[in-house]
Amino acid sequence: MADIRVPNDLWNADETPEGVVANWLYRDGSEVGAGDTVAEIMVEKATMEIAAPAAGRLTITVPKDGVVRPGTVIGRIDES
């Protein structure tokens, strides 16, 4: 399993504690490719695309509109 993680250094959590998952571009259970943009997060009027770290089946762990922080795992990729 590979984690889909909000990058730790994307924003300073001391200044801006939280963002949200603005959209998932694939449904839960979809097959995705390594590097595919799978989600978009929104924080402080910024939208940021998040890529799949590996190819495989997507499991969404933080749904659309769910709260995220730097380092939050928002989904997983089953590579088996």
Partner: peptide, 8 residues
């Protein structure tokens, strides 16, 4: 001010 980050 606002931002958009697209791609990787």
């Amino acid at each position: 001010l606002a931002q958009a980050w697209r791609g990787q």
